[in-house]
Design a protein around this nucleic acid. Structure first.
Lengths: 343, 343
DNA sequence: CTGAAAGCGCTTACAG
DNA sequence: CTGAAAGCGCTTACAG
């Protein structure tokens, strides 16, 4: 059942049917009503593939991707890029194209956004690392009817934004159950956050909250220690923490970021044992610690999937008029030594 | 860069280029060589979308799906069907269509296979529940150049088969680490398998093996108890097991199948406590036990994903000549109360 | 306000 | 062995 049959049934040309389908002006009320009725009755839906075949050659669907710069060999931000490239590859015959831009700080972020708005993009995929700049972006985008999708982290913003990310609070609760299962009521708990010049990372705090919520829910009464570190080269734990760790017997450490391997190293240096660690992200060093059983669990944010879904969802939104969810949840994927390499 | 440009560069018509691309006969050696060279040089690849647009109207890609009958309201086998339908929906504009058939035993399985071979299908998606019949299927399929993909379980078969399933042995190891983390060296371990008239299910045994391999790897010296049950209505644990369970303090139970909720019920009836349970599959009853903290972990076989990937991989194989892996691994997805509803 | 024609990249059936 | 034409379902630019 195609546009041709609809046209035939309505006694009009396919051009007129096309105008109605795309809500373009220039069709008389009566004709429009007649065509809509037939579309309704026949259950006709547009063949997006055929539509894109034609459109791919004249008007591409263009996405701008603005992510943190990736200089190092292993870099977290290469993973969403990988997912984005996979999706674009699947959809390139449908006329989907993407431009990548990178930022290093809020200044280069702003510059890149300005640059993006000089061209015409259907949507922008980025991260909400700078609150003020993210709000500015959303304002500009609203004016230009450009969709914005944020990856990685969810923050409160003034305008309607779309997020594709793991629920960090919930991930913290998952970490809570996993670690409590290993350490139990008699152990001690420590949360280690990552800090940069703007303070502790938003999603680290969200994870800590979720973690504490779980631990409290099981009637754990002792205090949960919490530390925030700037992770530089030659990282060392602060002396009071080392003392604390050495006096306690069983310890559970929740590293709310990708730096758990650094904690492992620091603990080893101090000869601190009897520690269970749970962290985030499948970087090489973390994976190694998992293999050596120095880390018990890693929670995978599935950054490739985030990038992949961003493109797929945006394509379905733009090409098939599917609604774009405000929050797309990435499953909280639990990785341990034995399910590391099976996917 | 399309077929038209290739034709122009080779000074031939697009029909001739098409013949070369599809390895159809009737092209002189010289012309063929010339065209292949230009394809090579330009890096031309066929636009599958355009190709399928045409082909969808004359020659569909047809899949036969043969799965266990699903009468009950909640049934595991509705899940791969859901995934299959999702994939077919995505690809229907590409001319992908599917027929569903159901079996109840090896007889109806054989009958269905015969019926399938009366028609022309590009591929068959089924489960390898009957070894002899699976081998027969593969033989017939090889003759007809029909691809066969097995879901759910991997077994040894004579001919080259394709499997999309979780690695059950590895899943058992994952269960081992998870349960050992909760129960530890001082506890007792019990494995519960499911049995039907043909004996204990293959993947249950594979999971048990993996589980035991892990538990042994951590130098656990006590015996791991293993039971195989036929799960009927009014299920009861056998008396000797009840006695055993009541005399032991901390117990870890690995249910290698979807029936962990039945074990929970049986344990409750006998007033047996201090038990950690890990099972498989997200059926409503298991989910309820997870929510009530009567089950600690469930391993999700992601049956929807299995069905989805079967269609996607087969489509890519048939329409894009991508190689079909002998074993496609479904990740070992760990579910606990807190990450149950986040995806 | 509406229609007819050309074309997206590919495939087929037919002509020579 | 090769080419020209028609067509897949849709979109556009133009004509009226």
């Amino acid at each position: 059942m195609g546009i041709k049959q609809i046209a035939k049934l309505a006694n009009v040309s396919i051009g007129t049917v096309d105008r109605v389908i795309h809500k373009r002006p220039g069709v008389s009320k009566e004709t429009k009503a007649k065509i809509l009725k037939i579309i309704e009755e026949t259950g006709y839906t547009k063949n997006t593939t055929a539509s894109r075949l034609k459109l791919a050659s004249i008007k591409k669907i263009k996405f701008a991707v603005l992510l943190p710069e990736t200089k190092k060999e292993w870099n977290y931000w290469k993973l969403p890029i990988q997912g984005i490239n996979n999706a674009v590859n699947e959809l390139k015959e449908m006329g989907v194209a993407v431009d990548f831009l990178y930022f290093t700080d809020s200044n280069t972020y702003t510059k890149s956004i300005e640059f993006i708005f000089l061209k015409e993009y259907n949507a922008i995929i980025t991260v909400p690392f700078f609150k003020k700049e993210s709000n500015t972006l959303l304002q500009k985008a609203a004016k230009k009817k450009t969709t914005v999708v944020f990856l990685d982290t969810e923050i409160d913003l003034e305008k309607n934004a779309h997020f594709i990310r793991q629920n960090s609070h919930q991930a913290g609760k998952v970490a809570g159950r996993l670690l409590y299962g290993l350490v139990g009521a008699d152990g001690e708990y420590l949360v280690i956050n990552k800090q940069n010049d703007k303070g502790t990372l938003v999603n680290n705090l969200q994870r800590e909250d979720g973690f504490k919520e779980f631990i409290k829910s099981v009637q754990y009464k002792k205090e949960i220690l919490s530390k925030s570190y700037i992770f530089k080269k030659d990282f060392n734990l602060c002396p009071d923490l080392i003392t604390w760790l050495k006096t306690k017997s069983l310890k559970g450490i929740f590293v709310t970021n990708s730096k758990s391997h650094i904690i492992v190293k620091a603990l080893n240096k101090e000869g601190i044992t009897n520690t269970q660690i749970i962290g985030f992200d499948l970087n090489d060093k973390n994976i190694n610690c998992l293999k050596n059983e120095e880390i018990s669990f890693l929670i995978n944010q599935q950054p490739e999937l985030q990038g992949y879904m961003a493109i797929k969802n945006l394509f379905n939104h733009i090409a098939k008029q599917e609604t774009l969810k405000t929050n797309y949840n990435i499953p909280i994927d639990i990785i341990l030594k034995e399910n590391l390499l099976t996917s």
